[in-house]
């Protein structure tokens, strides 16, 4: 009776957005008379950070401080159509729609400033701190606030913008599966270290290392939220979760959180992540979206690590102690495989 350590890896890519396109997102932006902006959407924040991602994208594009932008979502009377928050489409699709809306609003803002400064709008830049000035001549400047006031009360201009982003719909060839699927792909590779007890069949995840390529990271703290939480869900899918433990037999299903197993706060493992950024040609500032893929490499990496530890291939998820013990028995005992580098 012993505990065996093992290490496994997996590498994946992930398509961003609804597979065949045809999934538009719209955004509206307008300014108060003092240059404070509201982004009106119907996008959904279910924890992934839609509100903050679009807020940062809007502030960056408008060229104003982040405090000067709030995102109002989701009210169908004020926020225009959006397909929804799924398929890792939020940052990519809605981010681009917000850029388009913010660009239009920024165009009016600069026109209004140009009129006040009596210069050409094309010569103006924003400093991201609430000022607009002539390129190369910071002294010839006007605040966003004064510009918005002039636009509203003097010039009669609406500092507002509309945006839509649509990847056109593709068809699919029935015989070959030829299609124009997603346009942006994120990438990852993950290494899992586990310990398997050959007496109880229990698997403990000792630690994980990963590299994620996500295009431009819009907010690193929120990327970390997704990747850490998603890896937890990956461990949970790999080792614990199932509503039908003997699928396709539908019996013995859990009814509540006492029976539906998930790792608790005491079951988490150290996790070290490296972020690579290869901007997506069609992403907002090159952004892609880590929301769904963050669990995916964990499942096979753990399965491969279990094999490396005790020589048992579990091809049916979840990898329960019962399946491991049956495998060990069929093999006539644990069969540890080759050690791999700096395994824990």
């Amino acid at each position: 009776m012993a505990r065996f350590r093992g290490r496994g890896m997996a590498s994946v890519n992930y398509p961003i957005g609804m597979n065949l396109g045809g999934d538009p997102s719209q955004a509206l932006i307008h300014s108060n008379p003092d240059g404070k902006f509201t982004v009106a959407l119907s996008a959904i924040d279910l924890g992934q950070g839609m509100k903050q991602v679009t807020r940062q994208v809007a502030a960056e594009t408008l060229g104003v401080p982040i405090e000067d932008v709030y995102v109002d979502t989701a009210d169908s009377d004020t926020g225009p159509h959006d397909m929804g928050s799924f398929a890792s489409r939020g940052t990519h699709r809605m981010g681009n729609a917000v850029i388009a809306a913010a660009r239009e609003a920024r165009g009016v803002l600069l026109e209004a400033a140009a009129e006040e400064l009596e210069v050409n709008a094309a010569d103006l830049v924003t400093d991201g701190k609430g000022n607009i000035h002539v390129k190369g001549a910071p002294s010839r400047s006007i605040t966003v606030r004064a510009t918005a006031q002039a636009a509203q009360f003097k010039q009669g201009k609406t500092i507002a913008g509309r945006g839509i982003f649509l990847i056109p719909l593709s068809s699919v060839d029935p015989e070959t599966g030829e299609m124009n699927p997603n346009t942006a792909f994120a990438h990852a590779c993950l290494v899992a270290d586990v310990e398997v007890d050959d007496e109880t069949g229990e698997v403990t995840v000792l630690g994980m290392n990963s590299a994620y390529e996500l295009g431009r990271v819009i907010n690193p703290k929120m990327v970390e939220q997704q990747l850490v939480g998603g890896a937890w869900m990956g461990i949970s899918h790999a080792l614990y979760e199932t509503p039908e433990p003997y699928y396709p037999n539908p019996d013995h299903g859990p009814r509540d959180f006492n029976e539906y197993l998930m790792p608790g706060p005491g079951d988490i493992a150290p996790y070290s992540i490296a972020i690579l950024e290869r901007p997506a040609p069609d992403g907002p500032f090159g952004g892609k979206g880590p929301g769904e893929m963050c669990a995916n490499p964990v499942l096979p990496a753990i399965a491969n690590a279990v094999y490396n530890a005790v020589g048992v291939r579990v091809n049916d998820l979840p990898i329960t102690p019962e399946k491991i013990l049956r495998g060990i028995r069929a093999n006539g005992g644990a069969k540890p495989q080759a050690r791999r580098g700096g395994a824990l």
């Binding site: 939220q225 850490v228 939480g229 998603g230 890896a231 869900m233 608790g264 706060p265 988490i268």
Partner: peptide, 13 residues
């Protein structure tokens, strides 16, 4: 916090 379930964060933060 063992009696509280979080489905998003993985508990670490």
């Amino acid at each position: 916090i063992a009696g509280n379930i979080c489905r998003c964060t993985g508990y670490e933060p």
